[in-house]
Simulated scan of single mutants.
Amino acid sequence: MNAEATACTICHRGLYADELGRYACSPCTGRIDGQLRALAGAKGLYARLSAHLAPRVGNGGPAVSGSRTAPVPLRLDVLNLMTAGGPVLGPLETWVRDWRDHGRAEVCEAGTLQQRVDHAVRTLRFNLQWAVASHAAVDEFAREVSLIYRQCEAQVSGERRPRVIPVACPCGQTLRVTLDTPGCRCPRCGTQYGHSELMDLPLADRQIAA
């Protein structure tokens, strides 16, 4: 536990008395848990990706085929999300390994990809309260979980990806964010921004952002 912590490292709001010493506030902790929960299980976002492998038709809906299997070519963006080393299972198991090194988890790479996702989610949720109290990188964990959730949810719901907006850090670095980016750290000067602070930054010069 960080005895000096007075603000959430994810949303940067001040911690209430019963949250002091934690790296994340209760609302952010609940959001992480909800996003993890939405990914797993037979009706979870990861399982539902397989129904969206078929190319979309012109009206934005999924293509309909008389066959029980998706037509070729498959949507590679969706297929990539479903692979063992893709942007869903890969990061989830990386965090399980990280937490294993702290003596808090066990990695399980046996079974189907769905079973591995379910195991990783179950492990991360079980240890979430420990993480928000004791793991200094829980803000990075929260950003990765949010990204995984939004990528899967966007494919399942058919929503377009949010527009990327280039904003300028005072140090001159261009940060590429969206309207729902919870926060980010400037790679040049190391300044950590919350969502509202990012939205207050000026738009980057087009020539610099290009």
Rank of each mutant, 00 (worst) to 15 (best):
R161D: 13
S134D: 12
P55E: 07
T191I: 01
L20D: 01
V107L: 15
R160N: 12
H52G: 08
G34A: 07
P202V: 02
G41V: 02
A210N: 10
V145W: 09
D180T: 15
L203N: 12
N80G: 12
S26D: 09
G111F: 06
Q173L: 03
S196Y: 09
S67I: 01
A51V: 08
D77C: 10
L147T: 13
T6I: 05
V132K: 11
A42K: 13
A142W: 07
A209P: 11
P71V: 08
R176W: 11
T6A: 06
A70Y: 01
D118T: 08
F141V: 05
G103F: 00
N127L: 07
L15P: 04
T69V: 06
C171M: 07
A168P: 01
R116T: 03
A5K: 06
C11T: 14
C108W: 15
L49A: 01
L128V: 02
G66T: 01
M199R: 12
L92A: 05
R143E: 12
R116V: 03
M82F: 02
W95Q: 02
D98M: 06
R188C: 08
L15T: 09
G21I: 10
L124H: 10
M1F: 07
V88H: 02
G61E: 14
S50Q: 13
S65V: 08
G172I: 02
C8A: 03
L39W: 15
L74A: 13
T191G: 00
H119N: 09
P87F: 03
A40F: 10
S50F: 00
L81C: 07
A3G: 07
P55T: 08
C184T: 15
S196H: 10
I32D: 02
A120C: 03
L15C: 05
R13E: 13
K43N: 15
G14V: 10
P87H: 02
A120Q: 04
G21Y: 08
D118P: 08
K43P: 00
A63Q: 12
G44K: 03
P166W: 10
G190H: 04
R48Y: 00
R37P: 00
W95R: 04
N80L: 12
D180F: 04
S146N: 13
T29M: 05
S50C: 08
L113F: 12
T174F: 01
A3T: 15
A54I: 03
V64L: 14
L49W: 01
V156R: 11
G90L: 03
C28M: 07
C184D: 11
S26M: 11
A40V: 06
N59R: 12
G58C: 04
R163D: 09
A38S: 14
W130D: 08
L113R: 15
T94N: 13
R100H: 09
A38I: 13
Y23K: 00
T174V: 15
L179M: 10
P55G: 08
R104S: 02
S26E: 12
S67L: 07
V117T: 09
G90Y: 03
P187W: 02
